[in-house]
Amino acid sequence: MSIDKSQVKKVAKLSRISLDDKNLDSLSNDLALILKFVEQLNKLDTNNVKPLNSIVDKSLEPRKDQVNDGKIKEEILKNSPDKNEDFFIVPKVVE
């Protein structure tokens, strides 16, 4: 399996990353190299191996569904690049 430019374009779209043609070219080369490198794994037979999903040998502990933080609305909004009163502003999404 190798990756071509049109696939990189598609992955960039999925990743929501804009790429100009120059970056698309050089990143396509990088990605092809990296994928070739990781494909070494195909040399291994893993048919009977269970995938390792988590390194921690326990199921995640549920916590009580209660508020333990909050009332920092202003501090949170302070970091927003664009806001209006209590709202984050984004470009228009509905015509």
Binding site: I3, Q7, V8, V11, A12, L14, S15, I17, L19, N23, L27, D30, L31, I34, L35, V38
Partner: peptide
């Protein structure tokens, strides 16, 4: 970018 693209691909 490299890593996000690789990650999204795999």
């Amino acid at each position: 970018k490299r890593r996000v693209l690789i990650g999204t691909y795999v």
